[in-house]
Amino acid sequence: MTMELLVASAIAVLTAAGVYLVLRGRTFPVVLGLAFLSYAINLFLFAMGRLVIDRPPIYDKAAEAYTDPLPQALVLTAIVIAFGMTAFVVVLALRTFLETGVDHVDGHEDAEDAS
C-alpha cells in the first residue's frame, strides 16, 4: 500500500511541476516542464503494468510469477523519443533566442525587460 501511494504521489508531483513549468513564459522553464512531464509519464506507463517486486520480466525456470515486460519496453521507447525531442527543443529555443533576441514563448518582450 505504501509503495502504491509513494509512486502515485511521485507521478502527481512530477505532473504538477511539469504543468506549472510548461505554462511559464520563457522557453527554459518550458523545456524543463516538458522534461518533468515526460518523467511523470514514464513512471505512469511503468505503473500501468502493475507494481511487482522481485519478479523477472522474461522467462525464467525458477520463477513462479512474472512482472509485465511490455510497459518496460514502452517506457524505453518513450524515453528515447522524449530525450531526442528535449534535445531538439533546446536547440530550437536557443536558435530562436539568438536570432530574435527574445526567449519568450510568445515572441514578445516583457514590459519590465524592455525598461
Binding site: L34, I41, L45, M48, L74, A78, M85, V89, V105, G107
Partner: peptide, 25 residues
Amino acid sequence: KAGVKYVVINLVGSTLFLVGVGLLY
C-alpha cells in the same frame, strides 16, 4: 517564433497521448 510554439504544444500532446495509451493498457 512560430516553430517554438508548434513544437512545444505538440510535445505536450504527445505526453497526453501516452497517458491515454497507458490507461488503456
